[in-house]
Simulated scan of single mutants.
Amino acid sequence: MKFDHPEDIVRLTPLWKGERFANGRPKVSEDVLRRIRKITLEEAWGPLWNRGYPFQFEGDFKIVHPNQVMVGRAVTAVLVPKRPDLHDTLLNYGHEQEGRRGFFNQWVIDALVEDDVVVVDMFDKVHMGTYVGGNLSTAISTRTKRGGAVIWGGIRDNQQVAQIENINIFYRGSDPTAIADVTMVGMNVPTRIGRAVCLPGDVVLGTPAGVIFIPPHLAELTVVQAEKSQARDVFGFVRLKEGRYSTAQIDAAWGVALWEDYLQWFNSDEAAAEYRHLTWEAELADARRNERGGPQSDVRL
């Protein structure tokens, strides 16, 4: 029995082949996190849905900063109602065997690093289920710089928390009581947040519409597909304003001629400059095969 066990975390995330933290948690790159901050929830949702990940979104939250996007790597925790024998065993184990201090929620927050987001299943408990208040939210701010928390439970000290501008918190409700009668049974383990599943190291994208958890092995693919959608939209708006194409042509599968027009614009227009790290060979090849009546490759948005 261990909290935050590296071997377990690695076994839970075998599809991730990149860098990891010392505890085994996948470390999606800062560049990918930066780019995800620029995409919409729907742009992130599409690639996941199309690849068999329909249970990654939950929208039934209150939000401390409703118009502020939050992105970071998940640090997860699962709590259950207090049962005295289990509670004492796990609390004593953390203190005596792992050298942890304070209560269960403090253990998680003490483990945070830059760009982390706490993701907590507290079984929708609000009264005496306030996972953070002013002090712990300040600690989250200090440790994560621009992260935050997703709490399937409560918070307190809302007026103080709202003054912390560099993080965001998604939560179920508020209460003046302190956290009590709960026991943490897992840290950096699979976590259920409403309808969604979150694993340690998932990229958390919090928006005004809710939160989506992006598996780390799909994070770069997701942002690339989102950026491609954005770039094509910019081109489409330009050509529609010029009257060169109809909406039906822009919205339908593009033929070779339209793709060639797009690529000429993409390689020369200043509006496309921020997207020039993207490549389009597969899409153009698909258009050529389609015109010849051949099979298409697996290019999915």
Rank of each mutant, 00 (worst) to 15 (best):
A271S: 15
G46M: 14
V234K: 08
R34W: 06
V189R: 13
F21L: 14
P47T: 07
K27E: 03
G72R: 09
K62N: 15
N290E: 09
V80M: 14
D124V: 04
A219C: 13
P190N: 10
D181M: 11
G194L: 11
G154D: 05
R143K: 15
V224S: 04
G186Q: 06
T247G: 12
W265E: 12
I169G: 12
P66N: 06
L221E: 14
Q68I: 09
I36C: 01
D85A: 12
T207C: 07
I151S: 04
M122E: 01
E7W: 07
V132F: 02
D269T: 07
F266D: 08
R37I: 02
D31K: 11
G173V: 12
A149C: 03
A139T: 14
N290K: 13
F237M: 14
W259I: 05
G148F: 02
A44Y: 03
Q106I: 00
T13G: 00
Y275S: 03
G129F: 01
E281V: 06
V78W: 03
A231Q: 04
N105W: 04
Q97H: 03
R276E: 08
R35D: 09
L91T: 02
A111F: 00
D110M: 03
L240R: 05
I155A: 09
S137H: 08
E58K: 02
K27P: 07
A111S: 15
D110N: 10
W16Q: 04
G293A: 06
A272E: 04
G133E: 00
D124Q: 14
E30Q: 01
E227Y: 15
F55A: 14
W45L: 09
Y131A: 04
Q264H: 14
G206N: 09
R146F: 02
A196S: 15
Q56H: 13
G173W: 11
V132D: 00
Q159C: 05
H95G: 00
L90C: 00
A257K: 14
V223I: 12
D8S: 15
T89I: 02
R143T: 08
N188K: 11
L86A: 07
R288K: 15
L136A: 01
E114C: 02
I250K: 06
V161M: 11
K125E: 09
L33R: 01
V224E: 10
V113I: 15
A273L: 10
N67Q: 14
D202P: 07
R195I: 00
G129Q: 03
G94F: 01
V119C: 00
L218V: 13
I179H: 04
A253Q: 15
D88F: 01
T89E: 03
N188F: 05
N166F: 07
V113H: 00
D85L: 10
G24A: 07
G72T: 03
N92F: 06
L263V: 05
L218P: 11
R100V: 03
N135R: 15
V78Y: 04
H65V: 02
L48W: 09
S246T: 15
E291P: 03
V78S: 08
G243T: 09
F103K: 06
G148H: 08
I109C: 13
D202Q: 06
L221W: 14
I164S: 12
L91I: 10
